[in-house]
Design a binder for these strands. Structure first.
Lengths: 221, 221
DNA sequence: GAAAAAGGTAAAGATTTTGTAAAGATCTAA
DNA sequence: TTAGATCTTTACAAAATCTTTACCTTTTTC
């Protein structure tokens, strides 16, 4: 299920959006101000963001540069073309003006998701000698099979999909929540430790590095 | 250089588009009918397609399903919302209505390219030999990795994003408040000092200058 | 030129984060 | 139901980071 963050200070519009999106099968997160949005994004990673521009606190424009790797559809009443261009250049993925047609919004959302999904399609992920087969749910290192638990598999899959990329603990928890809903930062710590042991046994080195204050990353070298 | 296919039976509009795109540095291919388009696509694979809907022979709608792996921006006078939705669902990447603003069109084209490129594109900021990789959360100087803390990273990112630009202490404190909410001007002073030491070790010179009464700036020279 | 304000650095203390082990809780399959 | 595997919790030590304090230098202001 996809998660969409609805950022709007107008409660009516926000409620309406939430209802529409919910009916469409999306999970919805809400924020009502710029600072609240930053807080929300530091603890969640939605699959898409619907961003109103006129927010109390930080404006939508100010938030835009902080959003990485998540498509943003700007929702606003402002229609000035120069401004529109600027937003798109600054990282927005699309733009829709109020009042908007619900069906068009849903279509534009679908376009964004189709795009992000077309990126990953192969059933195998690999980093160096480490290989993860999504069909058989198996992990091997240099063709030596690894005995890996479900949670460890989910974590490793995330890391291996973004090699050398620091991934926050909250992101990991979010992404593995489907398999392991009760996982906390403490238990994650433990899973990482167990994963390290298993990986070290076959590779001879530590493959998962901590990024202090952020999370973890898989090192390729 | 990117290649864009302009599909329009109206020669004037087509010429205008070609001129605009050419000025922007794109290579342009032309087709004037549906069948011509299919022929063009069987022999070329442009990086993006601007597709008019009302074409002699095969209509734009009929062509859409045959295009795979190339972003398509539909250009049309039709503004009916249902129709728009249908197009987006059928594989169009974006939609722009005639008459359109050239700048907006160029922006939408840029968005499509940014998207297809973002697969391997990494968020990197650089000033001289200093390079900040947002993915891996790493900083290097002349490919020498720097050991940098979270707060120092946040400060450096801010400075490097605005090279030679003085940034006030309060701005810095604001921007790093998510990571380090307790940071005061006193502790900031300390962080800057620590950053300077680390940068001086690899660069041999002081890279962060104080702007008296204001804040700090990163010098490029 | 002297006082006040701002900047610079070092060292120490406080806090936060991380790593691992061990034990308890929960789930799963026979 | 029971054994085995898996997940979570707890506890504690170690490491890294952040803030504070102190003291000194530089710049501004009067």
């Amino acid at each position: 299920m996809k998660t969409i963050a609805v950022i709007d200070d107008d409660v009516h519009i926000g409620d309406m959006l939430e209802e529409v999106l919910h009916k469409e099968g999306y999970h919805v997160l809400r924020a009502y101000s710029g600072t609240e949005t930053m807080y929300l994004l530091s603890n969640n990673s939605p699959d898409l963001i619907l961003l109103d521009l006129m927010l109390p606190g930080l404006s939508g424009e100010a938030i835009l540069p902080h959003v990485k790797d998540i498509p943003v559809i700007v929702v606003s009443a402002k229609i000035d073309v120069d401004h529109k261009v600027e937003l798109l250049m600054n990282g927005a993925s699309d733009y829709i003006t109020k009042p908007f047609d619900t069906k068009e919004l849903l279509a534009r959302i679908a376009v964004q998701f189709r795009k992000t999904e077309s990126v990953r399609q192969i059933g195998m992920l690999s980093v160096g000698k480490l290989l993860l087969n999504e069909q058989s749910h198996e992990v091997t290192f240099d063709s030596t099979p690894l005995k890996i638990t479900k949670t460890e598999y989910a974590i490793l899959k995330l890391l291996i999909a973004n090699p050398d990329h620091a991934i926050s603990k909250s992101t990991i928890l979010d992404r593995i929540a489907f398999d392991t809903p009760d996982c906390t930062e403490d238990s994650l710590k433990q899973h990482i430790s167990n994963l390290r042991v298993k990986l070290r046994e076959v590779s001879g080195k530590n493959m998962i590095e901590a990024v202090w204050g952020i999370g973890y990353k898989l090192v390729t070298d």
